[in-house]
């Protein structure tokens, strides 16, 4: 579904990623790890075309990322649900409106029953009318996950989804992502939380890739 081959990415004369190759097949589960500032978010942004590679080849659902027009990028983002590190909500809209935003922008009608069910799935059924500022960090992350999956995307990308939540909440979010994977979704999670990765590997077959010294490596048995 998403394939990177010998991808380099640089910004302001500095190389942030060198020779990155990665293949995210249908129904796969990947963890992307590495220290802060290693380039995890950069790699994820290349996967939903918020950034363009300096060189190398990125194929997104069979299409070369370089050949994608602006509408193609919009269509891609309807197939890739992203849980952003900072959630990226519209502060003037309610939680329910934020979660239903991908449906609204793509011209699909929002079924109130389905929306309620989705909010219930992430444990936010009673907070549909709340504004983002009124939510806790964990609630915001769960709402971001609900927004990421509302279009039933093929791929879910989560960038440090458990960065601002306690252990119990991170386990809950992980369970939601594992549940999505069991439904056939491709999942990639960027995290530096090794305990989270170990907890996931106990339940699903997950590959772990690590960014070290700007290069992507397959993590070994140390996990």
């Amino acid at each position: 579904m998403i394939e990177l081959k010998d991808v380099n990415y640089g910004y302001g004369g500095a190389d942030l990623l060198v020779g990155a190759s990665l293949s995210l097949g249908a129904g796969s589960f990947h963890f992307l790890t590495g220290p802060s500032g290693a380039g995890k978010t950069t790699l994820l942004k290349l996967c939903y075309r918020e950034l363009q590679a300096s060189s190398g080849r990125i194929t997104l659902f069979g299409q070369d990322a370089r050949d994608m027009g602006r509408d193609d990028v919009s269509d891609l983002r309807r197939r890739v649900g992203v849980v952003h590190q900072d959630c990226q909500f519209l502060d003037h809209l309610s939680l329910a409106e934020n979660v239903a935003l991908p449906l609204l922008v793509s011209g699909h009608a929002s079924d109130p029953g389905n929306l309620k069910e989705l909010l219930g799935w992430v444990g936010l059924g009673d907070q549909a009318g709340s504004l983002p500022a009124e939510l806790s960090g964990g609630e915001r992350q769960r709402a971001a996950l609900a927004r990421a999956v509302i279009m039933s995307p093929d791929v879910v990308i989560a960038d440090e989804p458990t960065g601002n939540v306690d252990w119990e909440m991170s386990q809950r979010l992980l369970q939601l992502l594992i549940e999505l994977n069991r439904m056939g979704k491709t999942i990639i999670i960027a995290t530096h939380d090794m305990n989270l990765i170990r907890a996931a590997k106990a339940q699903v077959s997950a590959r772990v890739v690590r960014i070290k010294d700007r290069r992507l490596q397959i993590a070994g048995a140390d996990l």
Partner: peptide, 15 residues
């Protein structure tokens, strides 16, 4: 920021 979020969730320019 609103425009950025809309693009990220798949909104087309014309929308």
């Amino acid at each position: 920021q609103v425009i950025r979020v809309l693009r990220l969730v798949g909104a087309r320019d014309k929308f």
